[in-house]
Structure formats: structure tokens, C-alpha cells
């Protein structure tokens, strides 16, 4: 049987996330710290919901909030950020 990837970017499997939950992770950032799930190129935008579902077995889903949202919400070329608007 093939691997079942939850975090597509960092190639983190369902088993790895289950292990992190068993180790005491109760938040999405807790999973992130322990497995790297959600730290990849897409920043958890694809796997967050799947992880929330898995966490909801140990925690009320109402309390599972996304990790702090910080800019940039899209991958932005650094060269474009430093190229400020013309005054």
C-alpha cells in the first residue's frame, strides 16, 4: 500500500501526524513543530483542514484555530517587495 500523505509539501504521512498527536500535540502549530507539516512551500494551506480533522479526535474542533496568520499570504518574490512604489 502506498503512503498516505497529509502534508503534500513536506511529505508528512498520516502516521507521522498521529504520532505527534500521541506525543502531546493538541494544536496545529504543535503538529507543525513536531513534524514540519504545514511548514512547506504552501504554508499549510492544503493540509491544515486535514490536520484539524485529525486533531478533532483529541480536541474540540471549535478550539482548533489556524496558526497565527502573517504576511505574505502568497509567496512573493523578494525582489518585488524591495522594489517599492514610485513616489
Amino acid at each position: 500500500m502506498k503512503e498516505e500523505y497529509i502534508c503534500r509539501c513536506e511529505e508528512i504521512t498520516r502516521e507521522e501526524i498521529e504520532r505527534a498527536i500521541a506525543e502531546g500535540a493538541t494544536t496545529i502549530s504543535g503538529i507543525k513543530k513536531r513534524t514540519r507539516a504545514g511548514m512547506g512551500l504552501c504554508q499549510g494551506r492544503t493540509c491544515r483542514r486535514l490536520i484539524t480533522q485529525m486533531l478533532s479526535k483529541v480536541k474540540d474542533p471549535a478550539e482548533i484555530t489556524p496558526p497565527t496568520s502573517r504576511p505574505p499570504v502568497r509567496a512573493i518574490k523578494i525582489g518585488e517587495i524591495v522594489e517599492g512604489e514610485e513616489d
Partner: peptide, 15 residues
């Protein structure tokens, strides 16, 4: 980028 201009081509994904 002033010190390491090569960074300009790379994407920032988070702060």
C-alpha cells in the same frame, strides 16, 4: 538584498 543581492530571485513565504 543590499548585502546579498542573490536573495532577490527567491520568494518569501512567511514572516
Amino acid at each position: 538584498t543590499r548585502l546579498v543581492p542573490a536573495l532577490k530571485e527567491i520568494h518569501a513565504i512567511r514572516s
